[in-house]
């Protein structure tokens, strides 16, 4: 039996990522290795190719293949009110802090197709904070932002989302927030009236404002520790004093160079308050 060598495969993947960076200027070199490898492997199956080198050739010579790759590599779809305790803790621990500000700026970094943007907008509206808040929902991929702007999701997902909403401490009936049409749920435009959807790339772009809350859940897991540290610097610099960084439930700031500048706000969920 011919044994595949992990080292050789790693070399091939490195070459492919170097090639994409040099030719297209997109930089996946500091993505988490096993995640990017998995996306590449899946892409090979979809493209019916048997080697990484063959995929590299097609990516470099066929821009439409590159488009497909960008979508496959960069989309991390979440669900509404994913991890309900997170949203319950947001209500309990972050909302009281936000009430002390006349105006609230929130950056939702890596918003993908927007499920959690609408979740947060619903929460803020129930707490009477949406009108004086501005949500900046960013992603580096323009096509997922288009979906996020539309706020249209499959009707089949509403059962799970309703469950999540109830568990998160939702105060109304979830179906009040959307209109069902054919197989889709269209979310109320009022929810996104204070949301700015914009393209921003965590890998290379700079800070663009100062925020009271930065929410970035299950995005950094796709990066390696080097890139995570760079993004943590960006978040630190973009948070105001006493601002809150909200991460995914299995993420932490223990690998951030700014770990000492934060204190944990709630025990179980990943809210970190900037204290210096």
């Amino acid at each position: 039996m011919v044994i595949t060598q992990p080292d050789l495969e790693a070399v091939e993947i490195q070459l492919l990522l170097d090639g994409l960076f040099r030719h297209y200027g997109v930089d996946f070199r500091d993505y988490s290795y096993p995640s990017i490898r998995r996306r590449i492997r899946n892409m090979m199956i979809d493209e019916k190719l048997s080697t990484i080198s063959a995929l590299q050739e097609r990516l470099l010579h066929d821009p439409s293949c590159m488009e497909r790759f960008l979508l496959a590599v960069s989309v991390h779809v979440s669900s509404m009110f994913r991890d309900p305790p997170f949203f319950a803790n947001f209500r309990a621990a972050v909302v009281p802090l936000l009430r002390t500000y006349p105006y609230v700026r929130i950056w939702h970094a890596g918003c993908s197709t927007g499920e959690e943007v609408y979740s947060l907008a619903i929460l803020l509206s129930e707490e009477g904070l949406l009108e004086r808040s501005k949500l900046y929902a960013t992603d580096h991929n323009e096509s997922v932002l288009r979906k996020a702007r539309q706020g249209i999701y499959p009707l089949s997902a509403m059962k799970l989302y309703t469950d999540n909403y109830i568990k998160s401490g939702g105060k109304r009936s979830f179906s009040e927030y959307y209109t069902a049409k054919y197989e889709h749920a269209i979310f109320a435009p009022a929810l996104s009236s204070n949301v700015v959807f914009a393209q921003h790339n965590l890998v290379g772009d700079r800070s663009f404002n100062e925020f009271n809350v930065i929410m970035c859940r299950n995005v950094l897991i796709y990066f390696n520790k080097t890139l995570q540290a760079r993004v943590h610097k960006l978040f630190y610099e973009s948070l105001c004093q006493l601002g809150v960084l909200a991460l995914g439930d299995r993420e932490s700031i223990k690998f951030s160079p700014y770990e000492d500048c934060f204190k944990e706000l709630v025990g179980e969920s990943k809210f970190y308050q900037r204290v210096k």
């Binding site: 096993p34 995640s35 998995r38 991390h76």
Partner: peptide
């Protein structure tokens, strides 16, 4: 759960 050399990585892929 993904296993990298010496460390874990997570993903929320489908």
């Amino acid at each position: 759960l993904l296993i990298d050399r010496g460390e874990f990585a997570l993903s929320i892929d489908d």
